[in-house]
């Protein structure tokens, strides 16, 4: 059981604070409220992709052109995007924060969802550093991810360990 909720507006405030220009994403079941809230944020352009493997290459192109993108895809999509992460994330030294939906995460360690089981080993395998965010109380980890990506010129993950709440949820 995860205590507390994660409100999109608080995550978006972090994105705005870090001058994020583009949010490259394939929506998933946990991010519906986040997607809706982002569409109302005028300073960030949402770039929907058809397949998760496109997200990191699109972000690489945006960064090369002087923009400041982030990626948001689900853990299952990150597995699909493995070669893009290798070639156009780690391989080029791309400073990129990736928000990864931690589908199936329940803190008990016995989740029946293999998408959750494999996420942290997968990130370790790629040597991608990551921070887990489960509620608004964890959002102080997001600046750490932006800082680490910028200092190391490497992708850094923020694993979103809960479903984004509606803004009126407590």
């Amino acid at each position: 059981m995860i205590n507390g909720v994660l409100h999109p507006k608080n995550v978006i405030a972090q994105l705005v604070q870090h001058r994020v220009s583009h949010y490259v994403t394939l929506p998933d079941s946990e991010t519906a409220h986040m997607y809706a809230a982002l569409m109302a944020e005028p300073t960030i352009t949402v770039v929907p992709v058809a397949r998760e493997g496109e997200a990191i290459p699109v972000a690489a192109g945006l960064f090369v052109a002087g923009q400041n993108p982030v990626v948001s895809i689900q853990n299952a999509g990150l597995y699909e995007a493995g070669d893009a992460l290798r070639g156009l994330g780690l391989g080029i030294g791309l400073p990129l924060v990736m928000f990864i939906g931690y589908r199936g995460h329940n803190r008990k360690g016995d989740t029946p969802d293999s998408a959750a089981t494999f996420l942290e080993p997968y990130l370790h395998m790629w040597r991608v550093e990551y921070y887990v965010v489960e509620s608004d109380q964890d959002l102080d980890r997001v600046p750490l991810a932006f800082d680490k990506a910028a200092r190391t010129n490497q992708p850094v993950a923020v694993a979103i360990g809960t479903e984004y709440a509606s803004e009126d949820a407590n």
Partner: peptide, 12 residues
């Protein structure tokens, strides 16, 4: 991934 990188540059 050339088409995806190109899209990113074009948008940026």
């Amino acid at each position: 991934k050339a088409s995806s990188v190109a899209l990113g540059v074009a948008l940026g």
